[in-house]
Design a binder for these strands. Structure first.
Lengths: 220, 220, 220, 220
DNA sequence: AATGAATGAGTCTTCATTCAT
DNA sequence: TATGAATGAAGACTCATTCAT
């Protein structure tokens, strides 16, 4: 909302389905043992993602994040030992989701027509929008995320390149690489244009599907 | 650099050539009377734009901005009464440049082929990239800029829509509006892809030109 | 170790053998009813004494103390209702030990030569060194201990004065008082010099015995 | 006051008179440029030394230190970028003073009788008492000071050993080394006993002079 | 006009203590 | 009784802004 058209790199890996999706794999965060704890961790991460996206990483305060999740500041620190750790956990969750989604798509790529593929890619983007804004907001400020982002982006592009090669058998490896970047960029228009503007959103999503289909169709 | 692929909305107005390009239109900034003052203001704004882009709005400190511009903190406040005022001045400069550039393009639009138009649009984007990153970095944190951005974007889209209508006479007003958003988004890929990755940058710029040409050509 | 040469006042009372050695005399600590409880209390106090000495009173955290004693934080609070209560219990234990030791020495003082007395005093100091560091570390931060320390010191001096009077019958009460303070101070060199420097430690202990013997011998 | 009998190692170097005594040589502290600044730095260091000694390093808060010096918290941080930096500056001042004082004494050692030497040593101690308590309070908590302390102590002992050798020509190097440690320890009784107890203080100072004279006289 | 020391509100983070399980 | 998650007051430190020089 406050980030009307953030179109950064996105992220979806070519690696097998991410094993863990919880905060723990990020590093220091204490793993919640009880069911209650899991819910709290999720609430905390959601609140963090929202606030990071609304006001930016630096401007979002840990106190407000805890407060929005209905927790005390101490509780937030029980699970995430630092603001950066929280940011990394959010990034990890986003990264895992993106990876899973694209991976699934790769499995069916060879059976899809350009139009169907375009639709599937747009849908993938729509499903990820929630954490994406937060991820973008964190990039400039959190060094560790800045570093993790490039690999994610490369993995994503590779997977898309693979998908393109399956959908368009004649496509050379080299062309697929460049094309994957453009496909990814066009996919982002869904978030940049459609989501930011609810009214005319539908028209933009439709346009994105069209452009993607046209672009994929003309690849050779 | 630190902002690998920031592809937000950009900004180019449909309004007549911006009247003032200096900080003056921000309202707060004191107008320097002599040449020396103008240079200092420019240096200050450049330093601010650089730092905002490198570290993000919040992380950039007024002290460091002044320091990079070779000025004392007191001098910075002499011209820009607050950090927000500095941010607005930088945004205003970017906004004015974008407006001017696109406005010029609109004058020649009717004489250009789709391919030529695509090239011109890409060139416009390349010319603006320096201040764009800073503008994006400021958006989340500076409320006043968040508000100014939408109008800029709308104006930009209108101008692009106008350009498209002139280049593709058969295009309806409604379609031109949606198309302008997509054109703008594709233009941003230049910054998102090409600038962020110097090595393969050229290939991406070329791809952007192609995609834009293809997209414009198929409009009707 | 981290307290290379802490030579504060020490503590040994002139009062009869301390009645209770456990945390009980602190007032707050709950008396454990079974053997297992006693062990746990001792473990907790030992862990506290160690940590207070290693990192200082403030830097030592209740969580780490419990953890080192192999107990949960809740258990620690079961026996010691506050950090200060734990500190007081440790002080009380040290105080009682010191009192007992010196008291025993007083009983035999009249039968000892200056050299033998010097040796006995040095041995007393060596026996107490473990808790002394912790006690010193707590003094600055825990008001209640700061207050308890002076009485302990006075009592200790009184007992030493008594010992000196028995060992050196000609000694006046007034002189014995001043001398006791100096004797105590020299005793502390054992901890300050000998313990802190393991290599040359033996030489220092020997020197302390000598000085003490010389000092006592010349009293009159 | 709250540290009635702190008798840690002290510090006086054998190196030539310390070059700089200001806070700057400690490391990061910004050097005050105006006269006003120097006064402020001194006030800040005095307040820090007082509070560290009264409540211990951890318990003393930066806010209270600034407040006692009549400065804002921000001003304190202008000169001392961290609590540790302040601690180091105080230690450096103490270290320099101690070095200077002992060095001066070494120059006249050969002309002094044991009694005169004893008096001079006691006077040296009295002159240093103000910063000594603070230094001791900082030792446990500030790693960098813990490390600096041993060298200071060694240097001090060396200088004292040199003094003893000049005063007692027959003294072997080895014996002088051990003796210097004991002399230093006895010197500390001045602070431990005399200063802590104002009433009977005089008697203790006198006793210290006596013991020192006796000890030095019997060296051979 | 230029300078940079001074200010203090606001941020992240820690940790003693409580209490539901 | 034992456990450890939850709480929030308090502390170190930063930085936008002011103002005396």
């Amino acid at each position: 909302m406050s980030n009307p058209a953030p179109v950064d790199e996105n992220g979806m890996t070519g690696i097998a389905h991410s094993t863990a999706v919880t905060a723990a794999n990020t590093g220091q965060a204490k793993q919640p043992k009880r069911e209650r704890g899991k819910q709290r961790v999720a609430a905390l991460m959601n609140a963090g993602a929202e606030l990071f996206q609304e006001k930016g990483y630096e401007a979002a305060t840990m106190t407000e994040i805890a407060s929005r999740a209905g927790a005390a500041i101490g509780s937030l620190y029980q699970f995430f030992p630092s603001k950066e750790a929280l940011a990394e956990a959010i990034f990890a969750r986003y990264s895992a989701r993106a990876t899973d989604l694209l991976q699934d798509l790769a499995l069916q790529a060879s059976t899809l027509s350009p139009v169907q593929l375009a639709e599937a890619l747009v849908d993938t983007m729509l499903a990820l929008s929630s954490d994406r804004d937060a991820t973008i907001a964190m990039t400039d400020s959190v060094t560790s995320i800045e570093e993790r982002r490039k690999p994610l982006r490369n993995a994503t592009r590779n997977t898309i390149a693979t998908i393109l090669c399956e959908a368009v058998p004649a496509l050379s490896k080299a062309r697929a690489t460049v094309a994957s970047a453009m496909v990814l960029h066009i996919m982002k228009s869904v978030q940049a244009l459609a989501i930011a503007e609810k009214e005319s959103g539908q028209a933009f999503v439709a346009e994105a599907r069209t452009v993607l289909a046209v672009y994929i169709s003309q690849l050779h």
